[in-house]
């Protein structure tokens, strides 16, 4: 059997000089062509887990215990570039301090595949960039300065940059939160399509109703601990949701069209 595309095993983490652990013994796996939603309240350790799984936690990693594996390989044994070709972390925001066009920002994804010393992009690079930007609906504003784009448009650019990087495991950290409904729906379809091509995704989000529409499995974190992990219906029970979000008064229902579990405020 094929090993999971991405696996975290007994991951614990506390920030340097802090005794409060952010993650306690969390284990979770992502199979090929799977979308995993990583859900939980603020401060539950979702983003930290995502960064650890992507292998981009800054040094020192002294507070980190446990293992992350890309397929059969332990992530610590990989070079930074090999890691970036396999899995890519997409931040909630695209930092834009300098004048860059959307096209240039996406072309940075190709830095992971360096060509000759004094050539910015090969013909193949240009093809990949165009493909990535068309997939994520930003080809039409490729010549605009990223500093003048809306937050949602910048998130599309981030997604395109990640696709251009060529990794087939994408870890999205609130990376669709500022898109409008059209774009969110379109990105949902894109994820399903890419899934069919062997891509895998981990989504960190607070938008349960989006996550439940797209994800195959979900992992629920609370206070740094894994509460539940499995198929949506099994994890998102009303009792569990009320326990984790006691003040929200949540009701678990169903999407009348798709039958997927949805949350409502009472």
């Amino acid at each position: 059997m094929e090993p999971p595309v991405l696996g975290a095993y007994g991951v614990s983490y506390s920030f340097p000089n802090s005794s409060r652990p952010v993650l306690k013994e969390v284990s979770v796996e992502v199979e090929r062509s799977e979308i995993l939603a990583l859900l939980g309240p603020n401060g539950s350790g979702k983003s930290t887990l995502l960064k650890i799984m992507a292998g981009i936690l800054p040094l020192p990693r002294s507070g980190l215990n446990g293992q992350v594996r890309f397929g059969p390989v332990e992530v610590g044994t990989l070079t930074a570039r090999a890691r970036a070709k396999y899995a890519v972390y997409i931040a909630p925001e695209l930092r834009a301090e300098f004048p860059l066009t959307a096209f240039e920002a996406v072309s940075l994804g190709r830095l992971t595949h360096p060509g000759t010393l004094l050539k910015q992009s090969t013909k193949q690079d240009l093809g990949v960039i165009e493909w990535a930007m068309e997939q994520s609906f930003c080809w039409e504003f490729r010549n605009r300065d990223i500093r003048h784009l809306s937050d949602g448009e910048r998130q599309l650019v981030s997604l395109a940059r990640a696709l251009a990087q060529g990794a087939k495991t994408l870890l999205l950290d609130e990376a669709i939160s500022k898109m409008d409904l059209n774009h969110q729906a379109a990105v949902g379809k894109l994820l399903q399509k890419l899934k069919g091509q062997g891509y895998s995704f981990v989504l960190v989000t607070h938008d349960f109703n989006l996550a439940t529409e797209w994800a195959d499995h979900c992992c629920l974190l609370n206070k740094g601990q894994k509460v539940a992990w499995g198929p949506l219906q099994e994890v998102l029970t009303e009792a569990r949701m009320r326990e984790i979000y006691p003040d929200a008064g949540l009701i678990v229902g169903k999407n009348p069209a798709t039958g997927k579990p949805k949350l409502f405020f009472s």
Binding site: A54, I56, P58, T79, A80, R81, A82, R83, A84, K85, V88, Y89, I90, A91, L94, R95, A96, E97, F98, L100, A105, L108, G109, L111, T112, P114, A162, Q165
Partner: peptide, 20 residues
């Protein structure tokens, strides 16, 4: 290439496969 990777910040550079 390393300078370009840093344009979007440290975290982005890391996820592009550069050791900051």
């Amino acid at each position: 290439r390393e300078l370009d990777a840093l344009l979007l910040g440290e975290e982005a550079a890391r996820s592009l496969g550069f050791s900051i």
